Amino acid sequence: MKTPDQVVADARRRLENTWHNQAVGAGQAWPHKFPLSVPDKKDALESGWQQTIHPLIRTWRDWVARHPVRLHTASRQVFTTVQDVPSHLEILTADDAAAVVGGDWAERLERGRRRAALLADVLPAAPEPQRIIRATDGHTDTDFALLLKVATWFTRNDASGYTPRQVPIPGVHAKWLNTHQPLILNLAGREDLGLLPAHPSRIHFTYLDPGHRATGGRRHDSATVGDAFTPAYQPDIVIVSENKDTAIHFPPLPGGIAVEGDGFGGKAAAAFSWLTGSRHLLYWGDIDAYGFEILNGWRDDGVAAISILMDQATYDAYEPFGTNTDRNGKPLQPGIPKPLPHLTAAERAVYQRLLDPALQGHRRIEQERVPLSVANAAVQAAIRGS
């Protein structure tokens, strides 16, 4: 037989799955009867009667008296008497469910209904309003009002030829518009907003060849995907560095170019054959879970780089200088390793160790902790070994 806490958990799940329908007046989720899973067979009922079921019936009656619910019973033969045994708990409305579940559910329901009314008033033709209410549950009222304002603008105006930054709506910036596009499309009933595509991606890099630098040529450069571009020289060695400063200040290296890493993917870098076709293509990142996930992403995008200074020996050497917080200052936690199919067996072993709950050392060794002279030696060793 279920306890009140178990049925409250059932009610919470049902409320979580249906509240947005209730907010717009749709669906038939309530009233609902939750079974208490009382044993069907007389022997099972009697075997647990004294120790479990009878005390739990008293618990249920006390609990029901304090909550907006109905307790349904069924007459059952127990030993030599007939007992009214609770069989179902009925919750009549979503508001009653919110009161039973507690937390911020009453506030969420009220906010959802208020926003549903506003949505129906401003954009009465919007399809699936319940989906909008659910998707915007975490939005502030200001953001929700802005969403309706922008969607209304797109129902009345043509944005063809505009970039997201150029859309003339007060309070809207490009990042907000880009992240809210799916909702705006749904509300405005459009398949496309007509906006210009995002600007082409770029890579930034540093020329490391001492001969090139001696001629007075530019030290730092960039290349835009889609533009015709040829670097000052065809690199023999390309080092992709997760950290910008490391790439900029890497020691002189004949035929070398140091590319600044760009998050979890290398699609921009993969667009340049002079980069991917270099004889030695290396990747150097932080020794942490994110670093290996980024490395996997670069390889997945077509940059078949060999990692340096991301091995167990480097971790052991520089672990005393590590940290247990990420780049945003949040504590690093153990976790479940992702598949990451592009890691080598040795890389995967380090990655899995960094996520192991039993790890005693730090979970992150930043690139900056490794001297550039050591990095330069690692590059030379990688060249000799290839």
Rank of each mutant, 00 (worst) to 15 (best):
W105N: 08
W105E: 14
W105Y: 09
W105V: 04
W105L: 12
W105M: 09
A106C: 07
E107L: 11
E107M: 09
R108D: 00
R108S: 12
R111G: 10
R111F: 04
R111Q: 13
R113N: 12
R114D: 14
R115V: 07
R115Q: 08
A116F: 12
A117I: 01
A117C: 10
A117S: 13
L119C: 09
L119P: 09
D121T: 13
V122R: 05
L123M: 12
L123Y: 02
P124L: 08
P124Y: 09
A125T: 15
P127L: 08
P127N: 02
P127Y: 11
P127D: 13
E128L: 12
E128D: 14
E128A: 11
Q130F: 12
Q130V: 06
Q130D: 11
R131I: 05
R131N: 13
R131Q: 13
I132A: 04
I133G: 04
I133H: 14
R134I: 00
R134G: 07
A135M: 03
T136F: 07
T136L: 14
T136H: 04
T136Q: 12
D137M: 13
D137L: 05
D137H: 01
D137P: 03
G138F: 03
T140H: 05
T140Q: 08
D141Y: 10
D141R: 12
D141F: 09
T142R: 15
T142Y: 01
D143M: 07
D143A: 15
D143F: 08
D143Q: 14
A145M: 06
L147C: 01
L147K: 04
L147Q: 03
V150Y: 01
V150R: 11
A151S: 15
T152Q: 04
T152M: 04
W153Y: 06
W153D: 11
F154Y: 11
T155W: 03
T155H: 06
R156E: 15
R156A: 14
N157L: 02
N157G: 06
N157H: 15
D158A: 09
D158L: 05
A159W: 12
A159M: 11
A159K: 14
S160L: 05
G161N: 09
G161I: 08
Y162G: 04
T163F: 09
T163S: 15
P164R: 00
P164Y: 07
P164L: 00
P164H: 07
P164T: 06
P164G: 05
R165E: 02
Q166F: 02
V167H: 02
P168T: 09
I169R: 02
P170M: 03
G171S: 07
G171E: 07
V172W: 01
V172F: 00
H173N: 15
A174N: 05
K175A: 06
K175R: 15
W176E: 05
W176A: 02
L177A: 08
N178A: 15
N178Y: 08
T179P: 02
T179H: 13
T179W: 10
T179A: 02
H180I: 07
Q181C: 01
Q181M: 03
Q181V: 13
P182K: 05
P182V: 02
P182C: 04
L183W: 09
I184S: 10
I184F: 03
I184H: 06
L185H: 00
L185T: 11
L185C: 00
L187S: 11
L187F: 10
L187M: 03
G189D: 08
R190N: 06
R190L: 15
R190H: 03
E191H: 10
E191W: 10
D192S: 09
D192A: 12
D192P: 05
G194Q: 09
